[in-house]
Deep mutational scan, measured.
Amino acid sequence: EAHAAIDTFTKYLDIDEDFATVLVEEGFSTLEELAYVPMKELLEIEGLDEPTVEALRERAKNALATIAQ
């Protein structure tokens, strides 16, 4: 499951495998979680700032909209 989540994140969020791995290690496994989890939870991840989190959430929401079509 972790590998599938990493693949999904790299494909749809335009991030590298290392960043995707950090997200999975922090407990995220779906685009929905990244799109809708409280921003505070993402900001608790070391190295993430508000602009990065906002961009990540926007990419996740856009990916979900694209997949739904």
Rank of each mutant, 00 (worst) to 15 (best):
I67C: 05
T30M: 05
P38W: 05
A63D: 00
P38F: 06
F28S: 00
T52E: 05
R57F: 03
M39E: 06
H3N: 10
M39I: 13
I15Q: 01
L48E: 02
K40I: 10
I15V: 08
F9L: 07
A68D: 08
E41L: 14
I15K: 00
L23F: 03
V53D: 01
D16C: 06
E17T: 10
I15P: 01
A63P: 00
Y12C: 05
L13I: 02
D16S: 14
E58S: 06
A63N: 02
E44H: 14
Q69E: 09
P38T: 11
V22W: 14
N62C: 09
E25V: 09
I45F: 04
A55E: 10
Q69G: 11
A2M: 15
E50D: 06
E26T: 14
E41A: 12
A63W: 05
I67K: 06
G27R: 02
F19T: 10
L43N: 04
Y36E: 09
K11F: 12
I15E: 00
E46F: 15
N62Y: 10
K11A: 07
P38V: 06
F28Y: 13
V24K: 03
A4L: 10
A55T: 08
E46Y: 12
S29M: 15
K40S: 13
A20K: 01
T8R: 12
T66K: 08
R57E: 02
E44V: 12
G27M: 02
V37D: 05
S29P: 02
R57H: 06
P38C: 07
A65F: 08
D18M: 11
A60S: 03
F19C: 08
L34R: 00
P51K: 14
E54W: 10
L42W: 06
E17G: 07
T30I: 03
A5R: 05
G27I: 02
R59F: 04
D14G: 15
D14T: 05
L43G: 04
T8I: 14
L42P: 03
D18E: 13
H3I: 13
V22S: 07
E50G: 12
P38A: 10
G47T: 05
I6G: 02
A2Q: 14
L31I: 08
E33S: 14
Y36K: 09
A65K: 11
L23R: 00
T30H: 04
V22F: 15
V24I: 11
D18P: 08
T8G: 04
G27A: 02
T66Q: 13
D18L: 10
M39P: 07
F28L: 05
E17Y: 14
S29G: 07
A35W: 06
G47I: 05
T66W: 11
A60I: 07
T10F: 04
A63S: 04
L34K: 00
A2H: 13
V22I: 14
E26Y: 15
T30Q: 05
E54Q: 13
E17M: 10
Q69S: 10
E1D: 12
R59H: 07
